[in-house]
């Protein structure tokens, strides 16, 4: 199993006001698959994604990626782990405002010794025409494409997407999902995608539904729906 979570627990707050966010999460994911983490607000899906991304620690249980357990890693090792294995995409694009589209993507390329070919990637992302524009000169969808480009140019093993379409309209959301799908197919990138949009689960290989910090349902899609055909 490429990604393996065992009995992961996490809580927030002080002793008297403690909230358990994750209550013993266990599941696995094979390499090159798309996994959608689905659940309502406060179900713990973003926390789980952040734990996998090494930017949040677990209280109990273990997380291993490609055989490396991350819960005992020091900050430096975690940075290295993120640098070598992960790409991150958030709901807000978090681009650097005074860098162009091309340069924002280069920010990701800098982290890799063998980044993907920049020009080709920009064409794949549909950003070639906009490569010399700054983020405030392009649309939200184009900004999210840029953020995806920044995440994948270093050719990560695992792409973590936290509500990547949360701030986008229907049409653009579908384009972004199709792009993620394309990245998965083209580069074999494993994708963990957090969403509260029920329709998106249809494009996943594996679906994990969370509620109140526990897995309510977990299954494999025998027949996936291409992102372009999703409806909601």
């Amino acid at each position: 199993m490429y990604l393996d979570l065992k009995d992961v627990t996490k809580s927030y707050g002080e002793s008297g006001n403690r909230t358990q966010v994750l209550r013993g999460i266990s599941f696995g994911l094979e390499q090159g698959k798309i996994c959608v983490l689905l659940g309502p607000s406060g179900s713990g899906k973003s926390t789980l994604l952040n734990i996998i991304g090494g930017i949040e620690t677990v209280d109990g249980g273990s997380v291993s990626i490609d055989g490396d357990t991350i819960e005992h890693m020091a900050e430096k090792d975690l940075s290295k782990y993120r640098r070598n294995h992960l790409g991150y995409v958030f709901q807000s694009y978090n681009l650097i405002p005074n860098l162009t589209v091309r340069e924002n993507i280069e920010v990701g390329a800098y982290l890799s010794d063998q980044p993907l070919q920049l020009e080709e990637l920009m064409k794949t992302l549909g950003l070639w025409e906009h490569r010399d524009k700054t983020p405030n000169q392009i649309s939200g969808g184009q900004q999210q494409r840029t953020a995806i480009g920044r995440a994948i140019i270093k050719n990560p093993d695992l792409l973590l997407c936290d509500e990547p379409t949360g701030a986008l309209d229907y049409k653009t959301s579908k384009e972004i999902l199709a792009l993620i799908e394309e990245v998965n197919q083209k580069y074999g990138t494993t994708v963990m995608l957090v969403t509260h949009n029920d329709a998106i689960k249809e494009m996943a290989d594996r679906v994990v539904i969370l509620r109140d910090g526990q897995i309510r349902e977990e299954y494999t899609n025998e027949i996936k729906t291409p992102a372009a055909d999703l409806e909601w």
């Binding site: 650097i96 860098l99 340069e103 800098y110 890799s112 980044p115 993907l116 070919q117 990637l121 083209k186």
Partner: peptide
Amino acid sequence: MSSKGKTGNPLMKRI
């Protein structure tokens, strides 16, 4: 898709 060597720090362009 081909790959190429590491680029210079693009953050420098912000300066």
